[in-house]
Nucleic acid binder design. Sequence first.
DNA 1: TCCGTGACACAAG
DNA 2: CCTTGTGCCACGG
Length: 113
Amino acid sequence: MMRFYRAVWRLVERIPRGRVATYGQLAALLGHARAARAVGVAMRHCPPGVPWHRVVNARGGISVRGNVAAMVTQRIRLEQEGVTLRSGRVSLPRWRWRPTRGRRLRLAALDRL
DNA sequence: TCCGTGACACAAG
DNA sequence: CCTTGTGCCACGG
């Protein structure tokens, strides 16, 4: 159980420092283009160690709900990594993580867990 | 098996 | 820019 969530966490761990990915982007990379919401739920149950703060919504904004502390933490951590926010949003063209396809990102392998 | 729950995305107004 | 409304879907009860 929770196969999808675990695949999401593993993928999030691949996001480099100073870069961000969107919920929809991660879902698509996992081959579930329409499961962006599920990715959000996966983030809410993130096990320690997963760089959840590098995941933002399609507009580059912070989507954390009902948790002011986490919301602030995400902004602080992103800034510490050099990601700049303007009006609470990051420029996706500038900071979006673009994984190199091919041997490195093995979707089949990710899907298997 | 059915049903409610979201850290989504996108289109309208 | 903001606010709704709608479509989507993995998960757990």
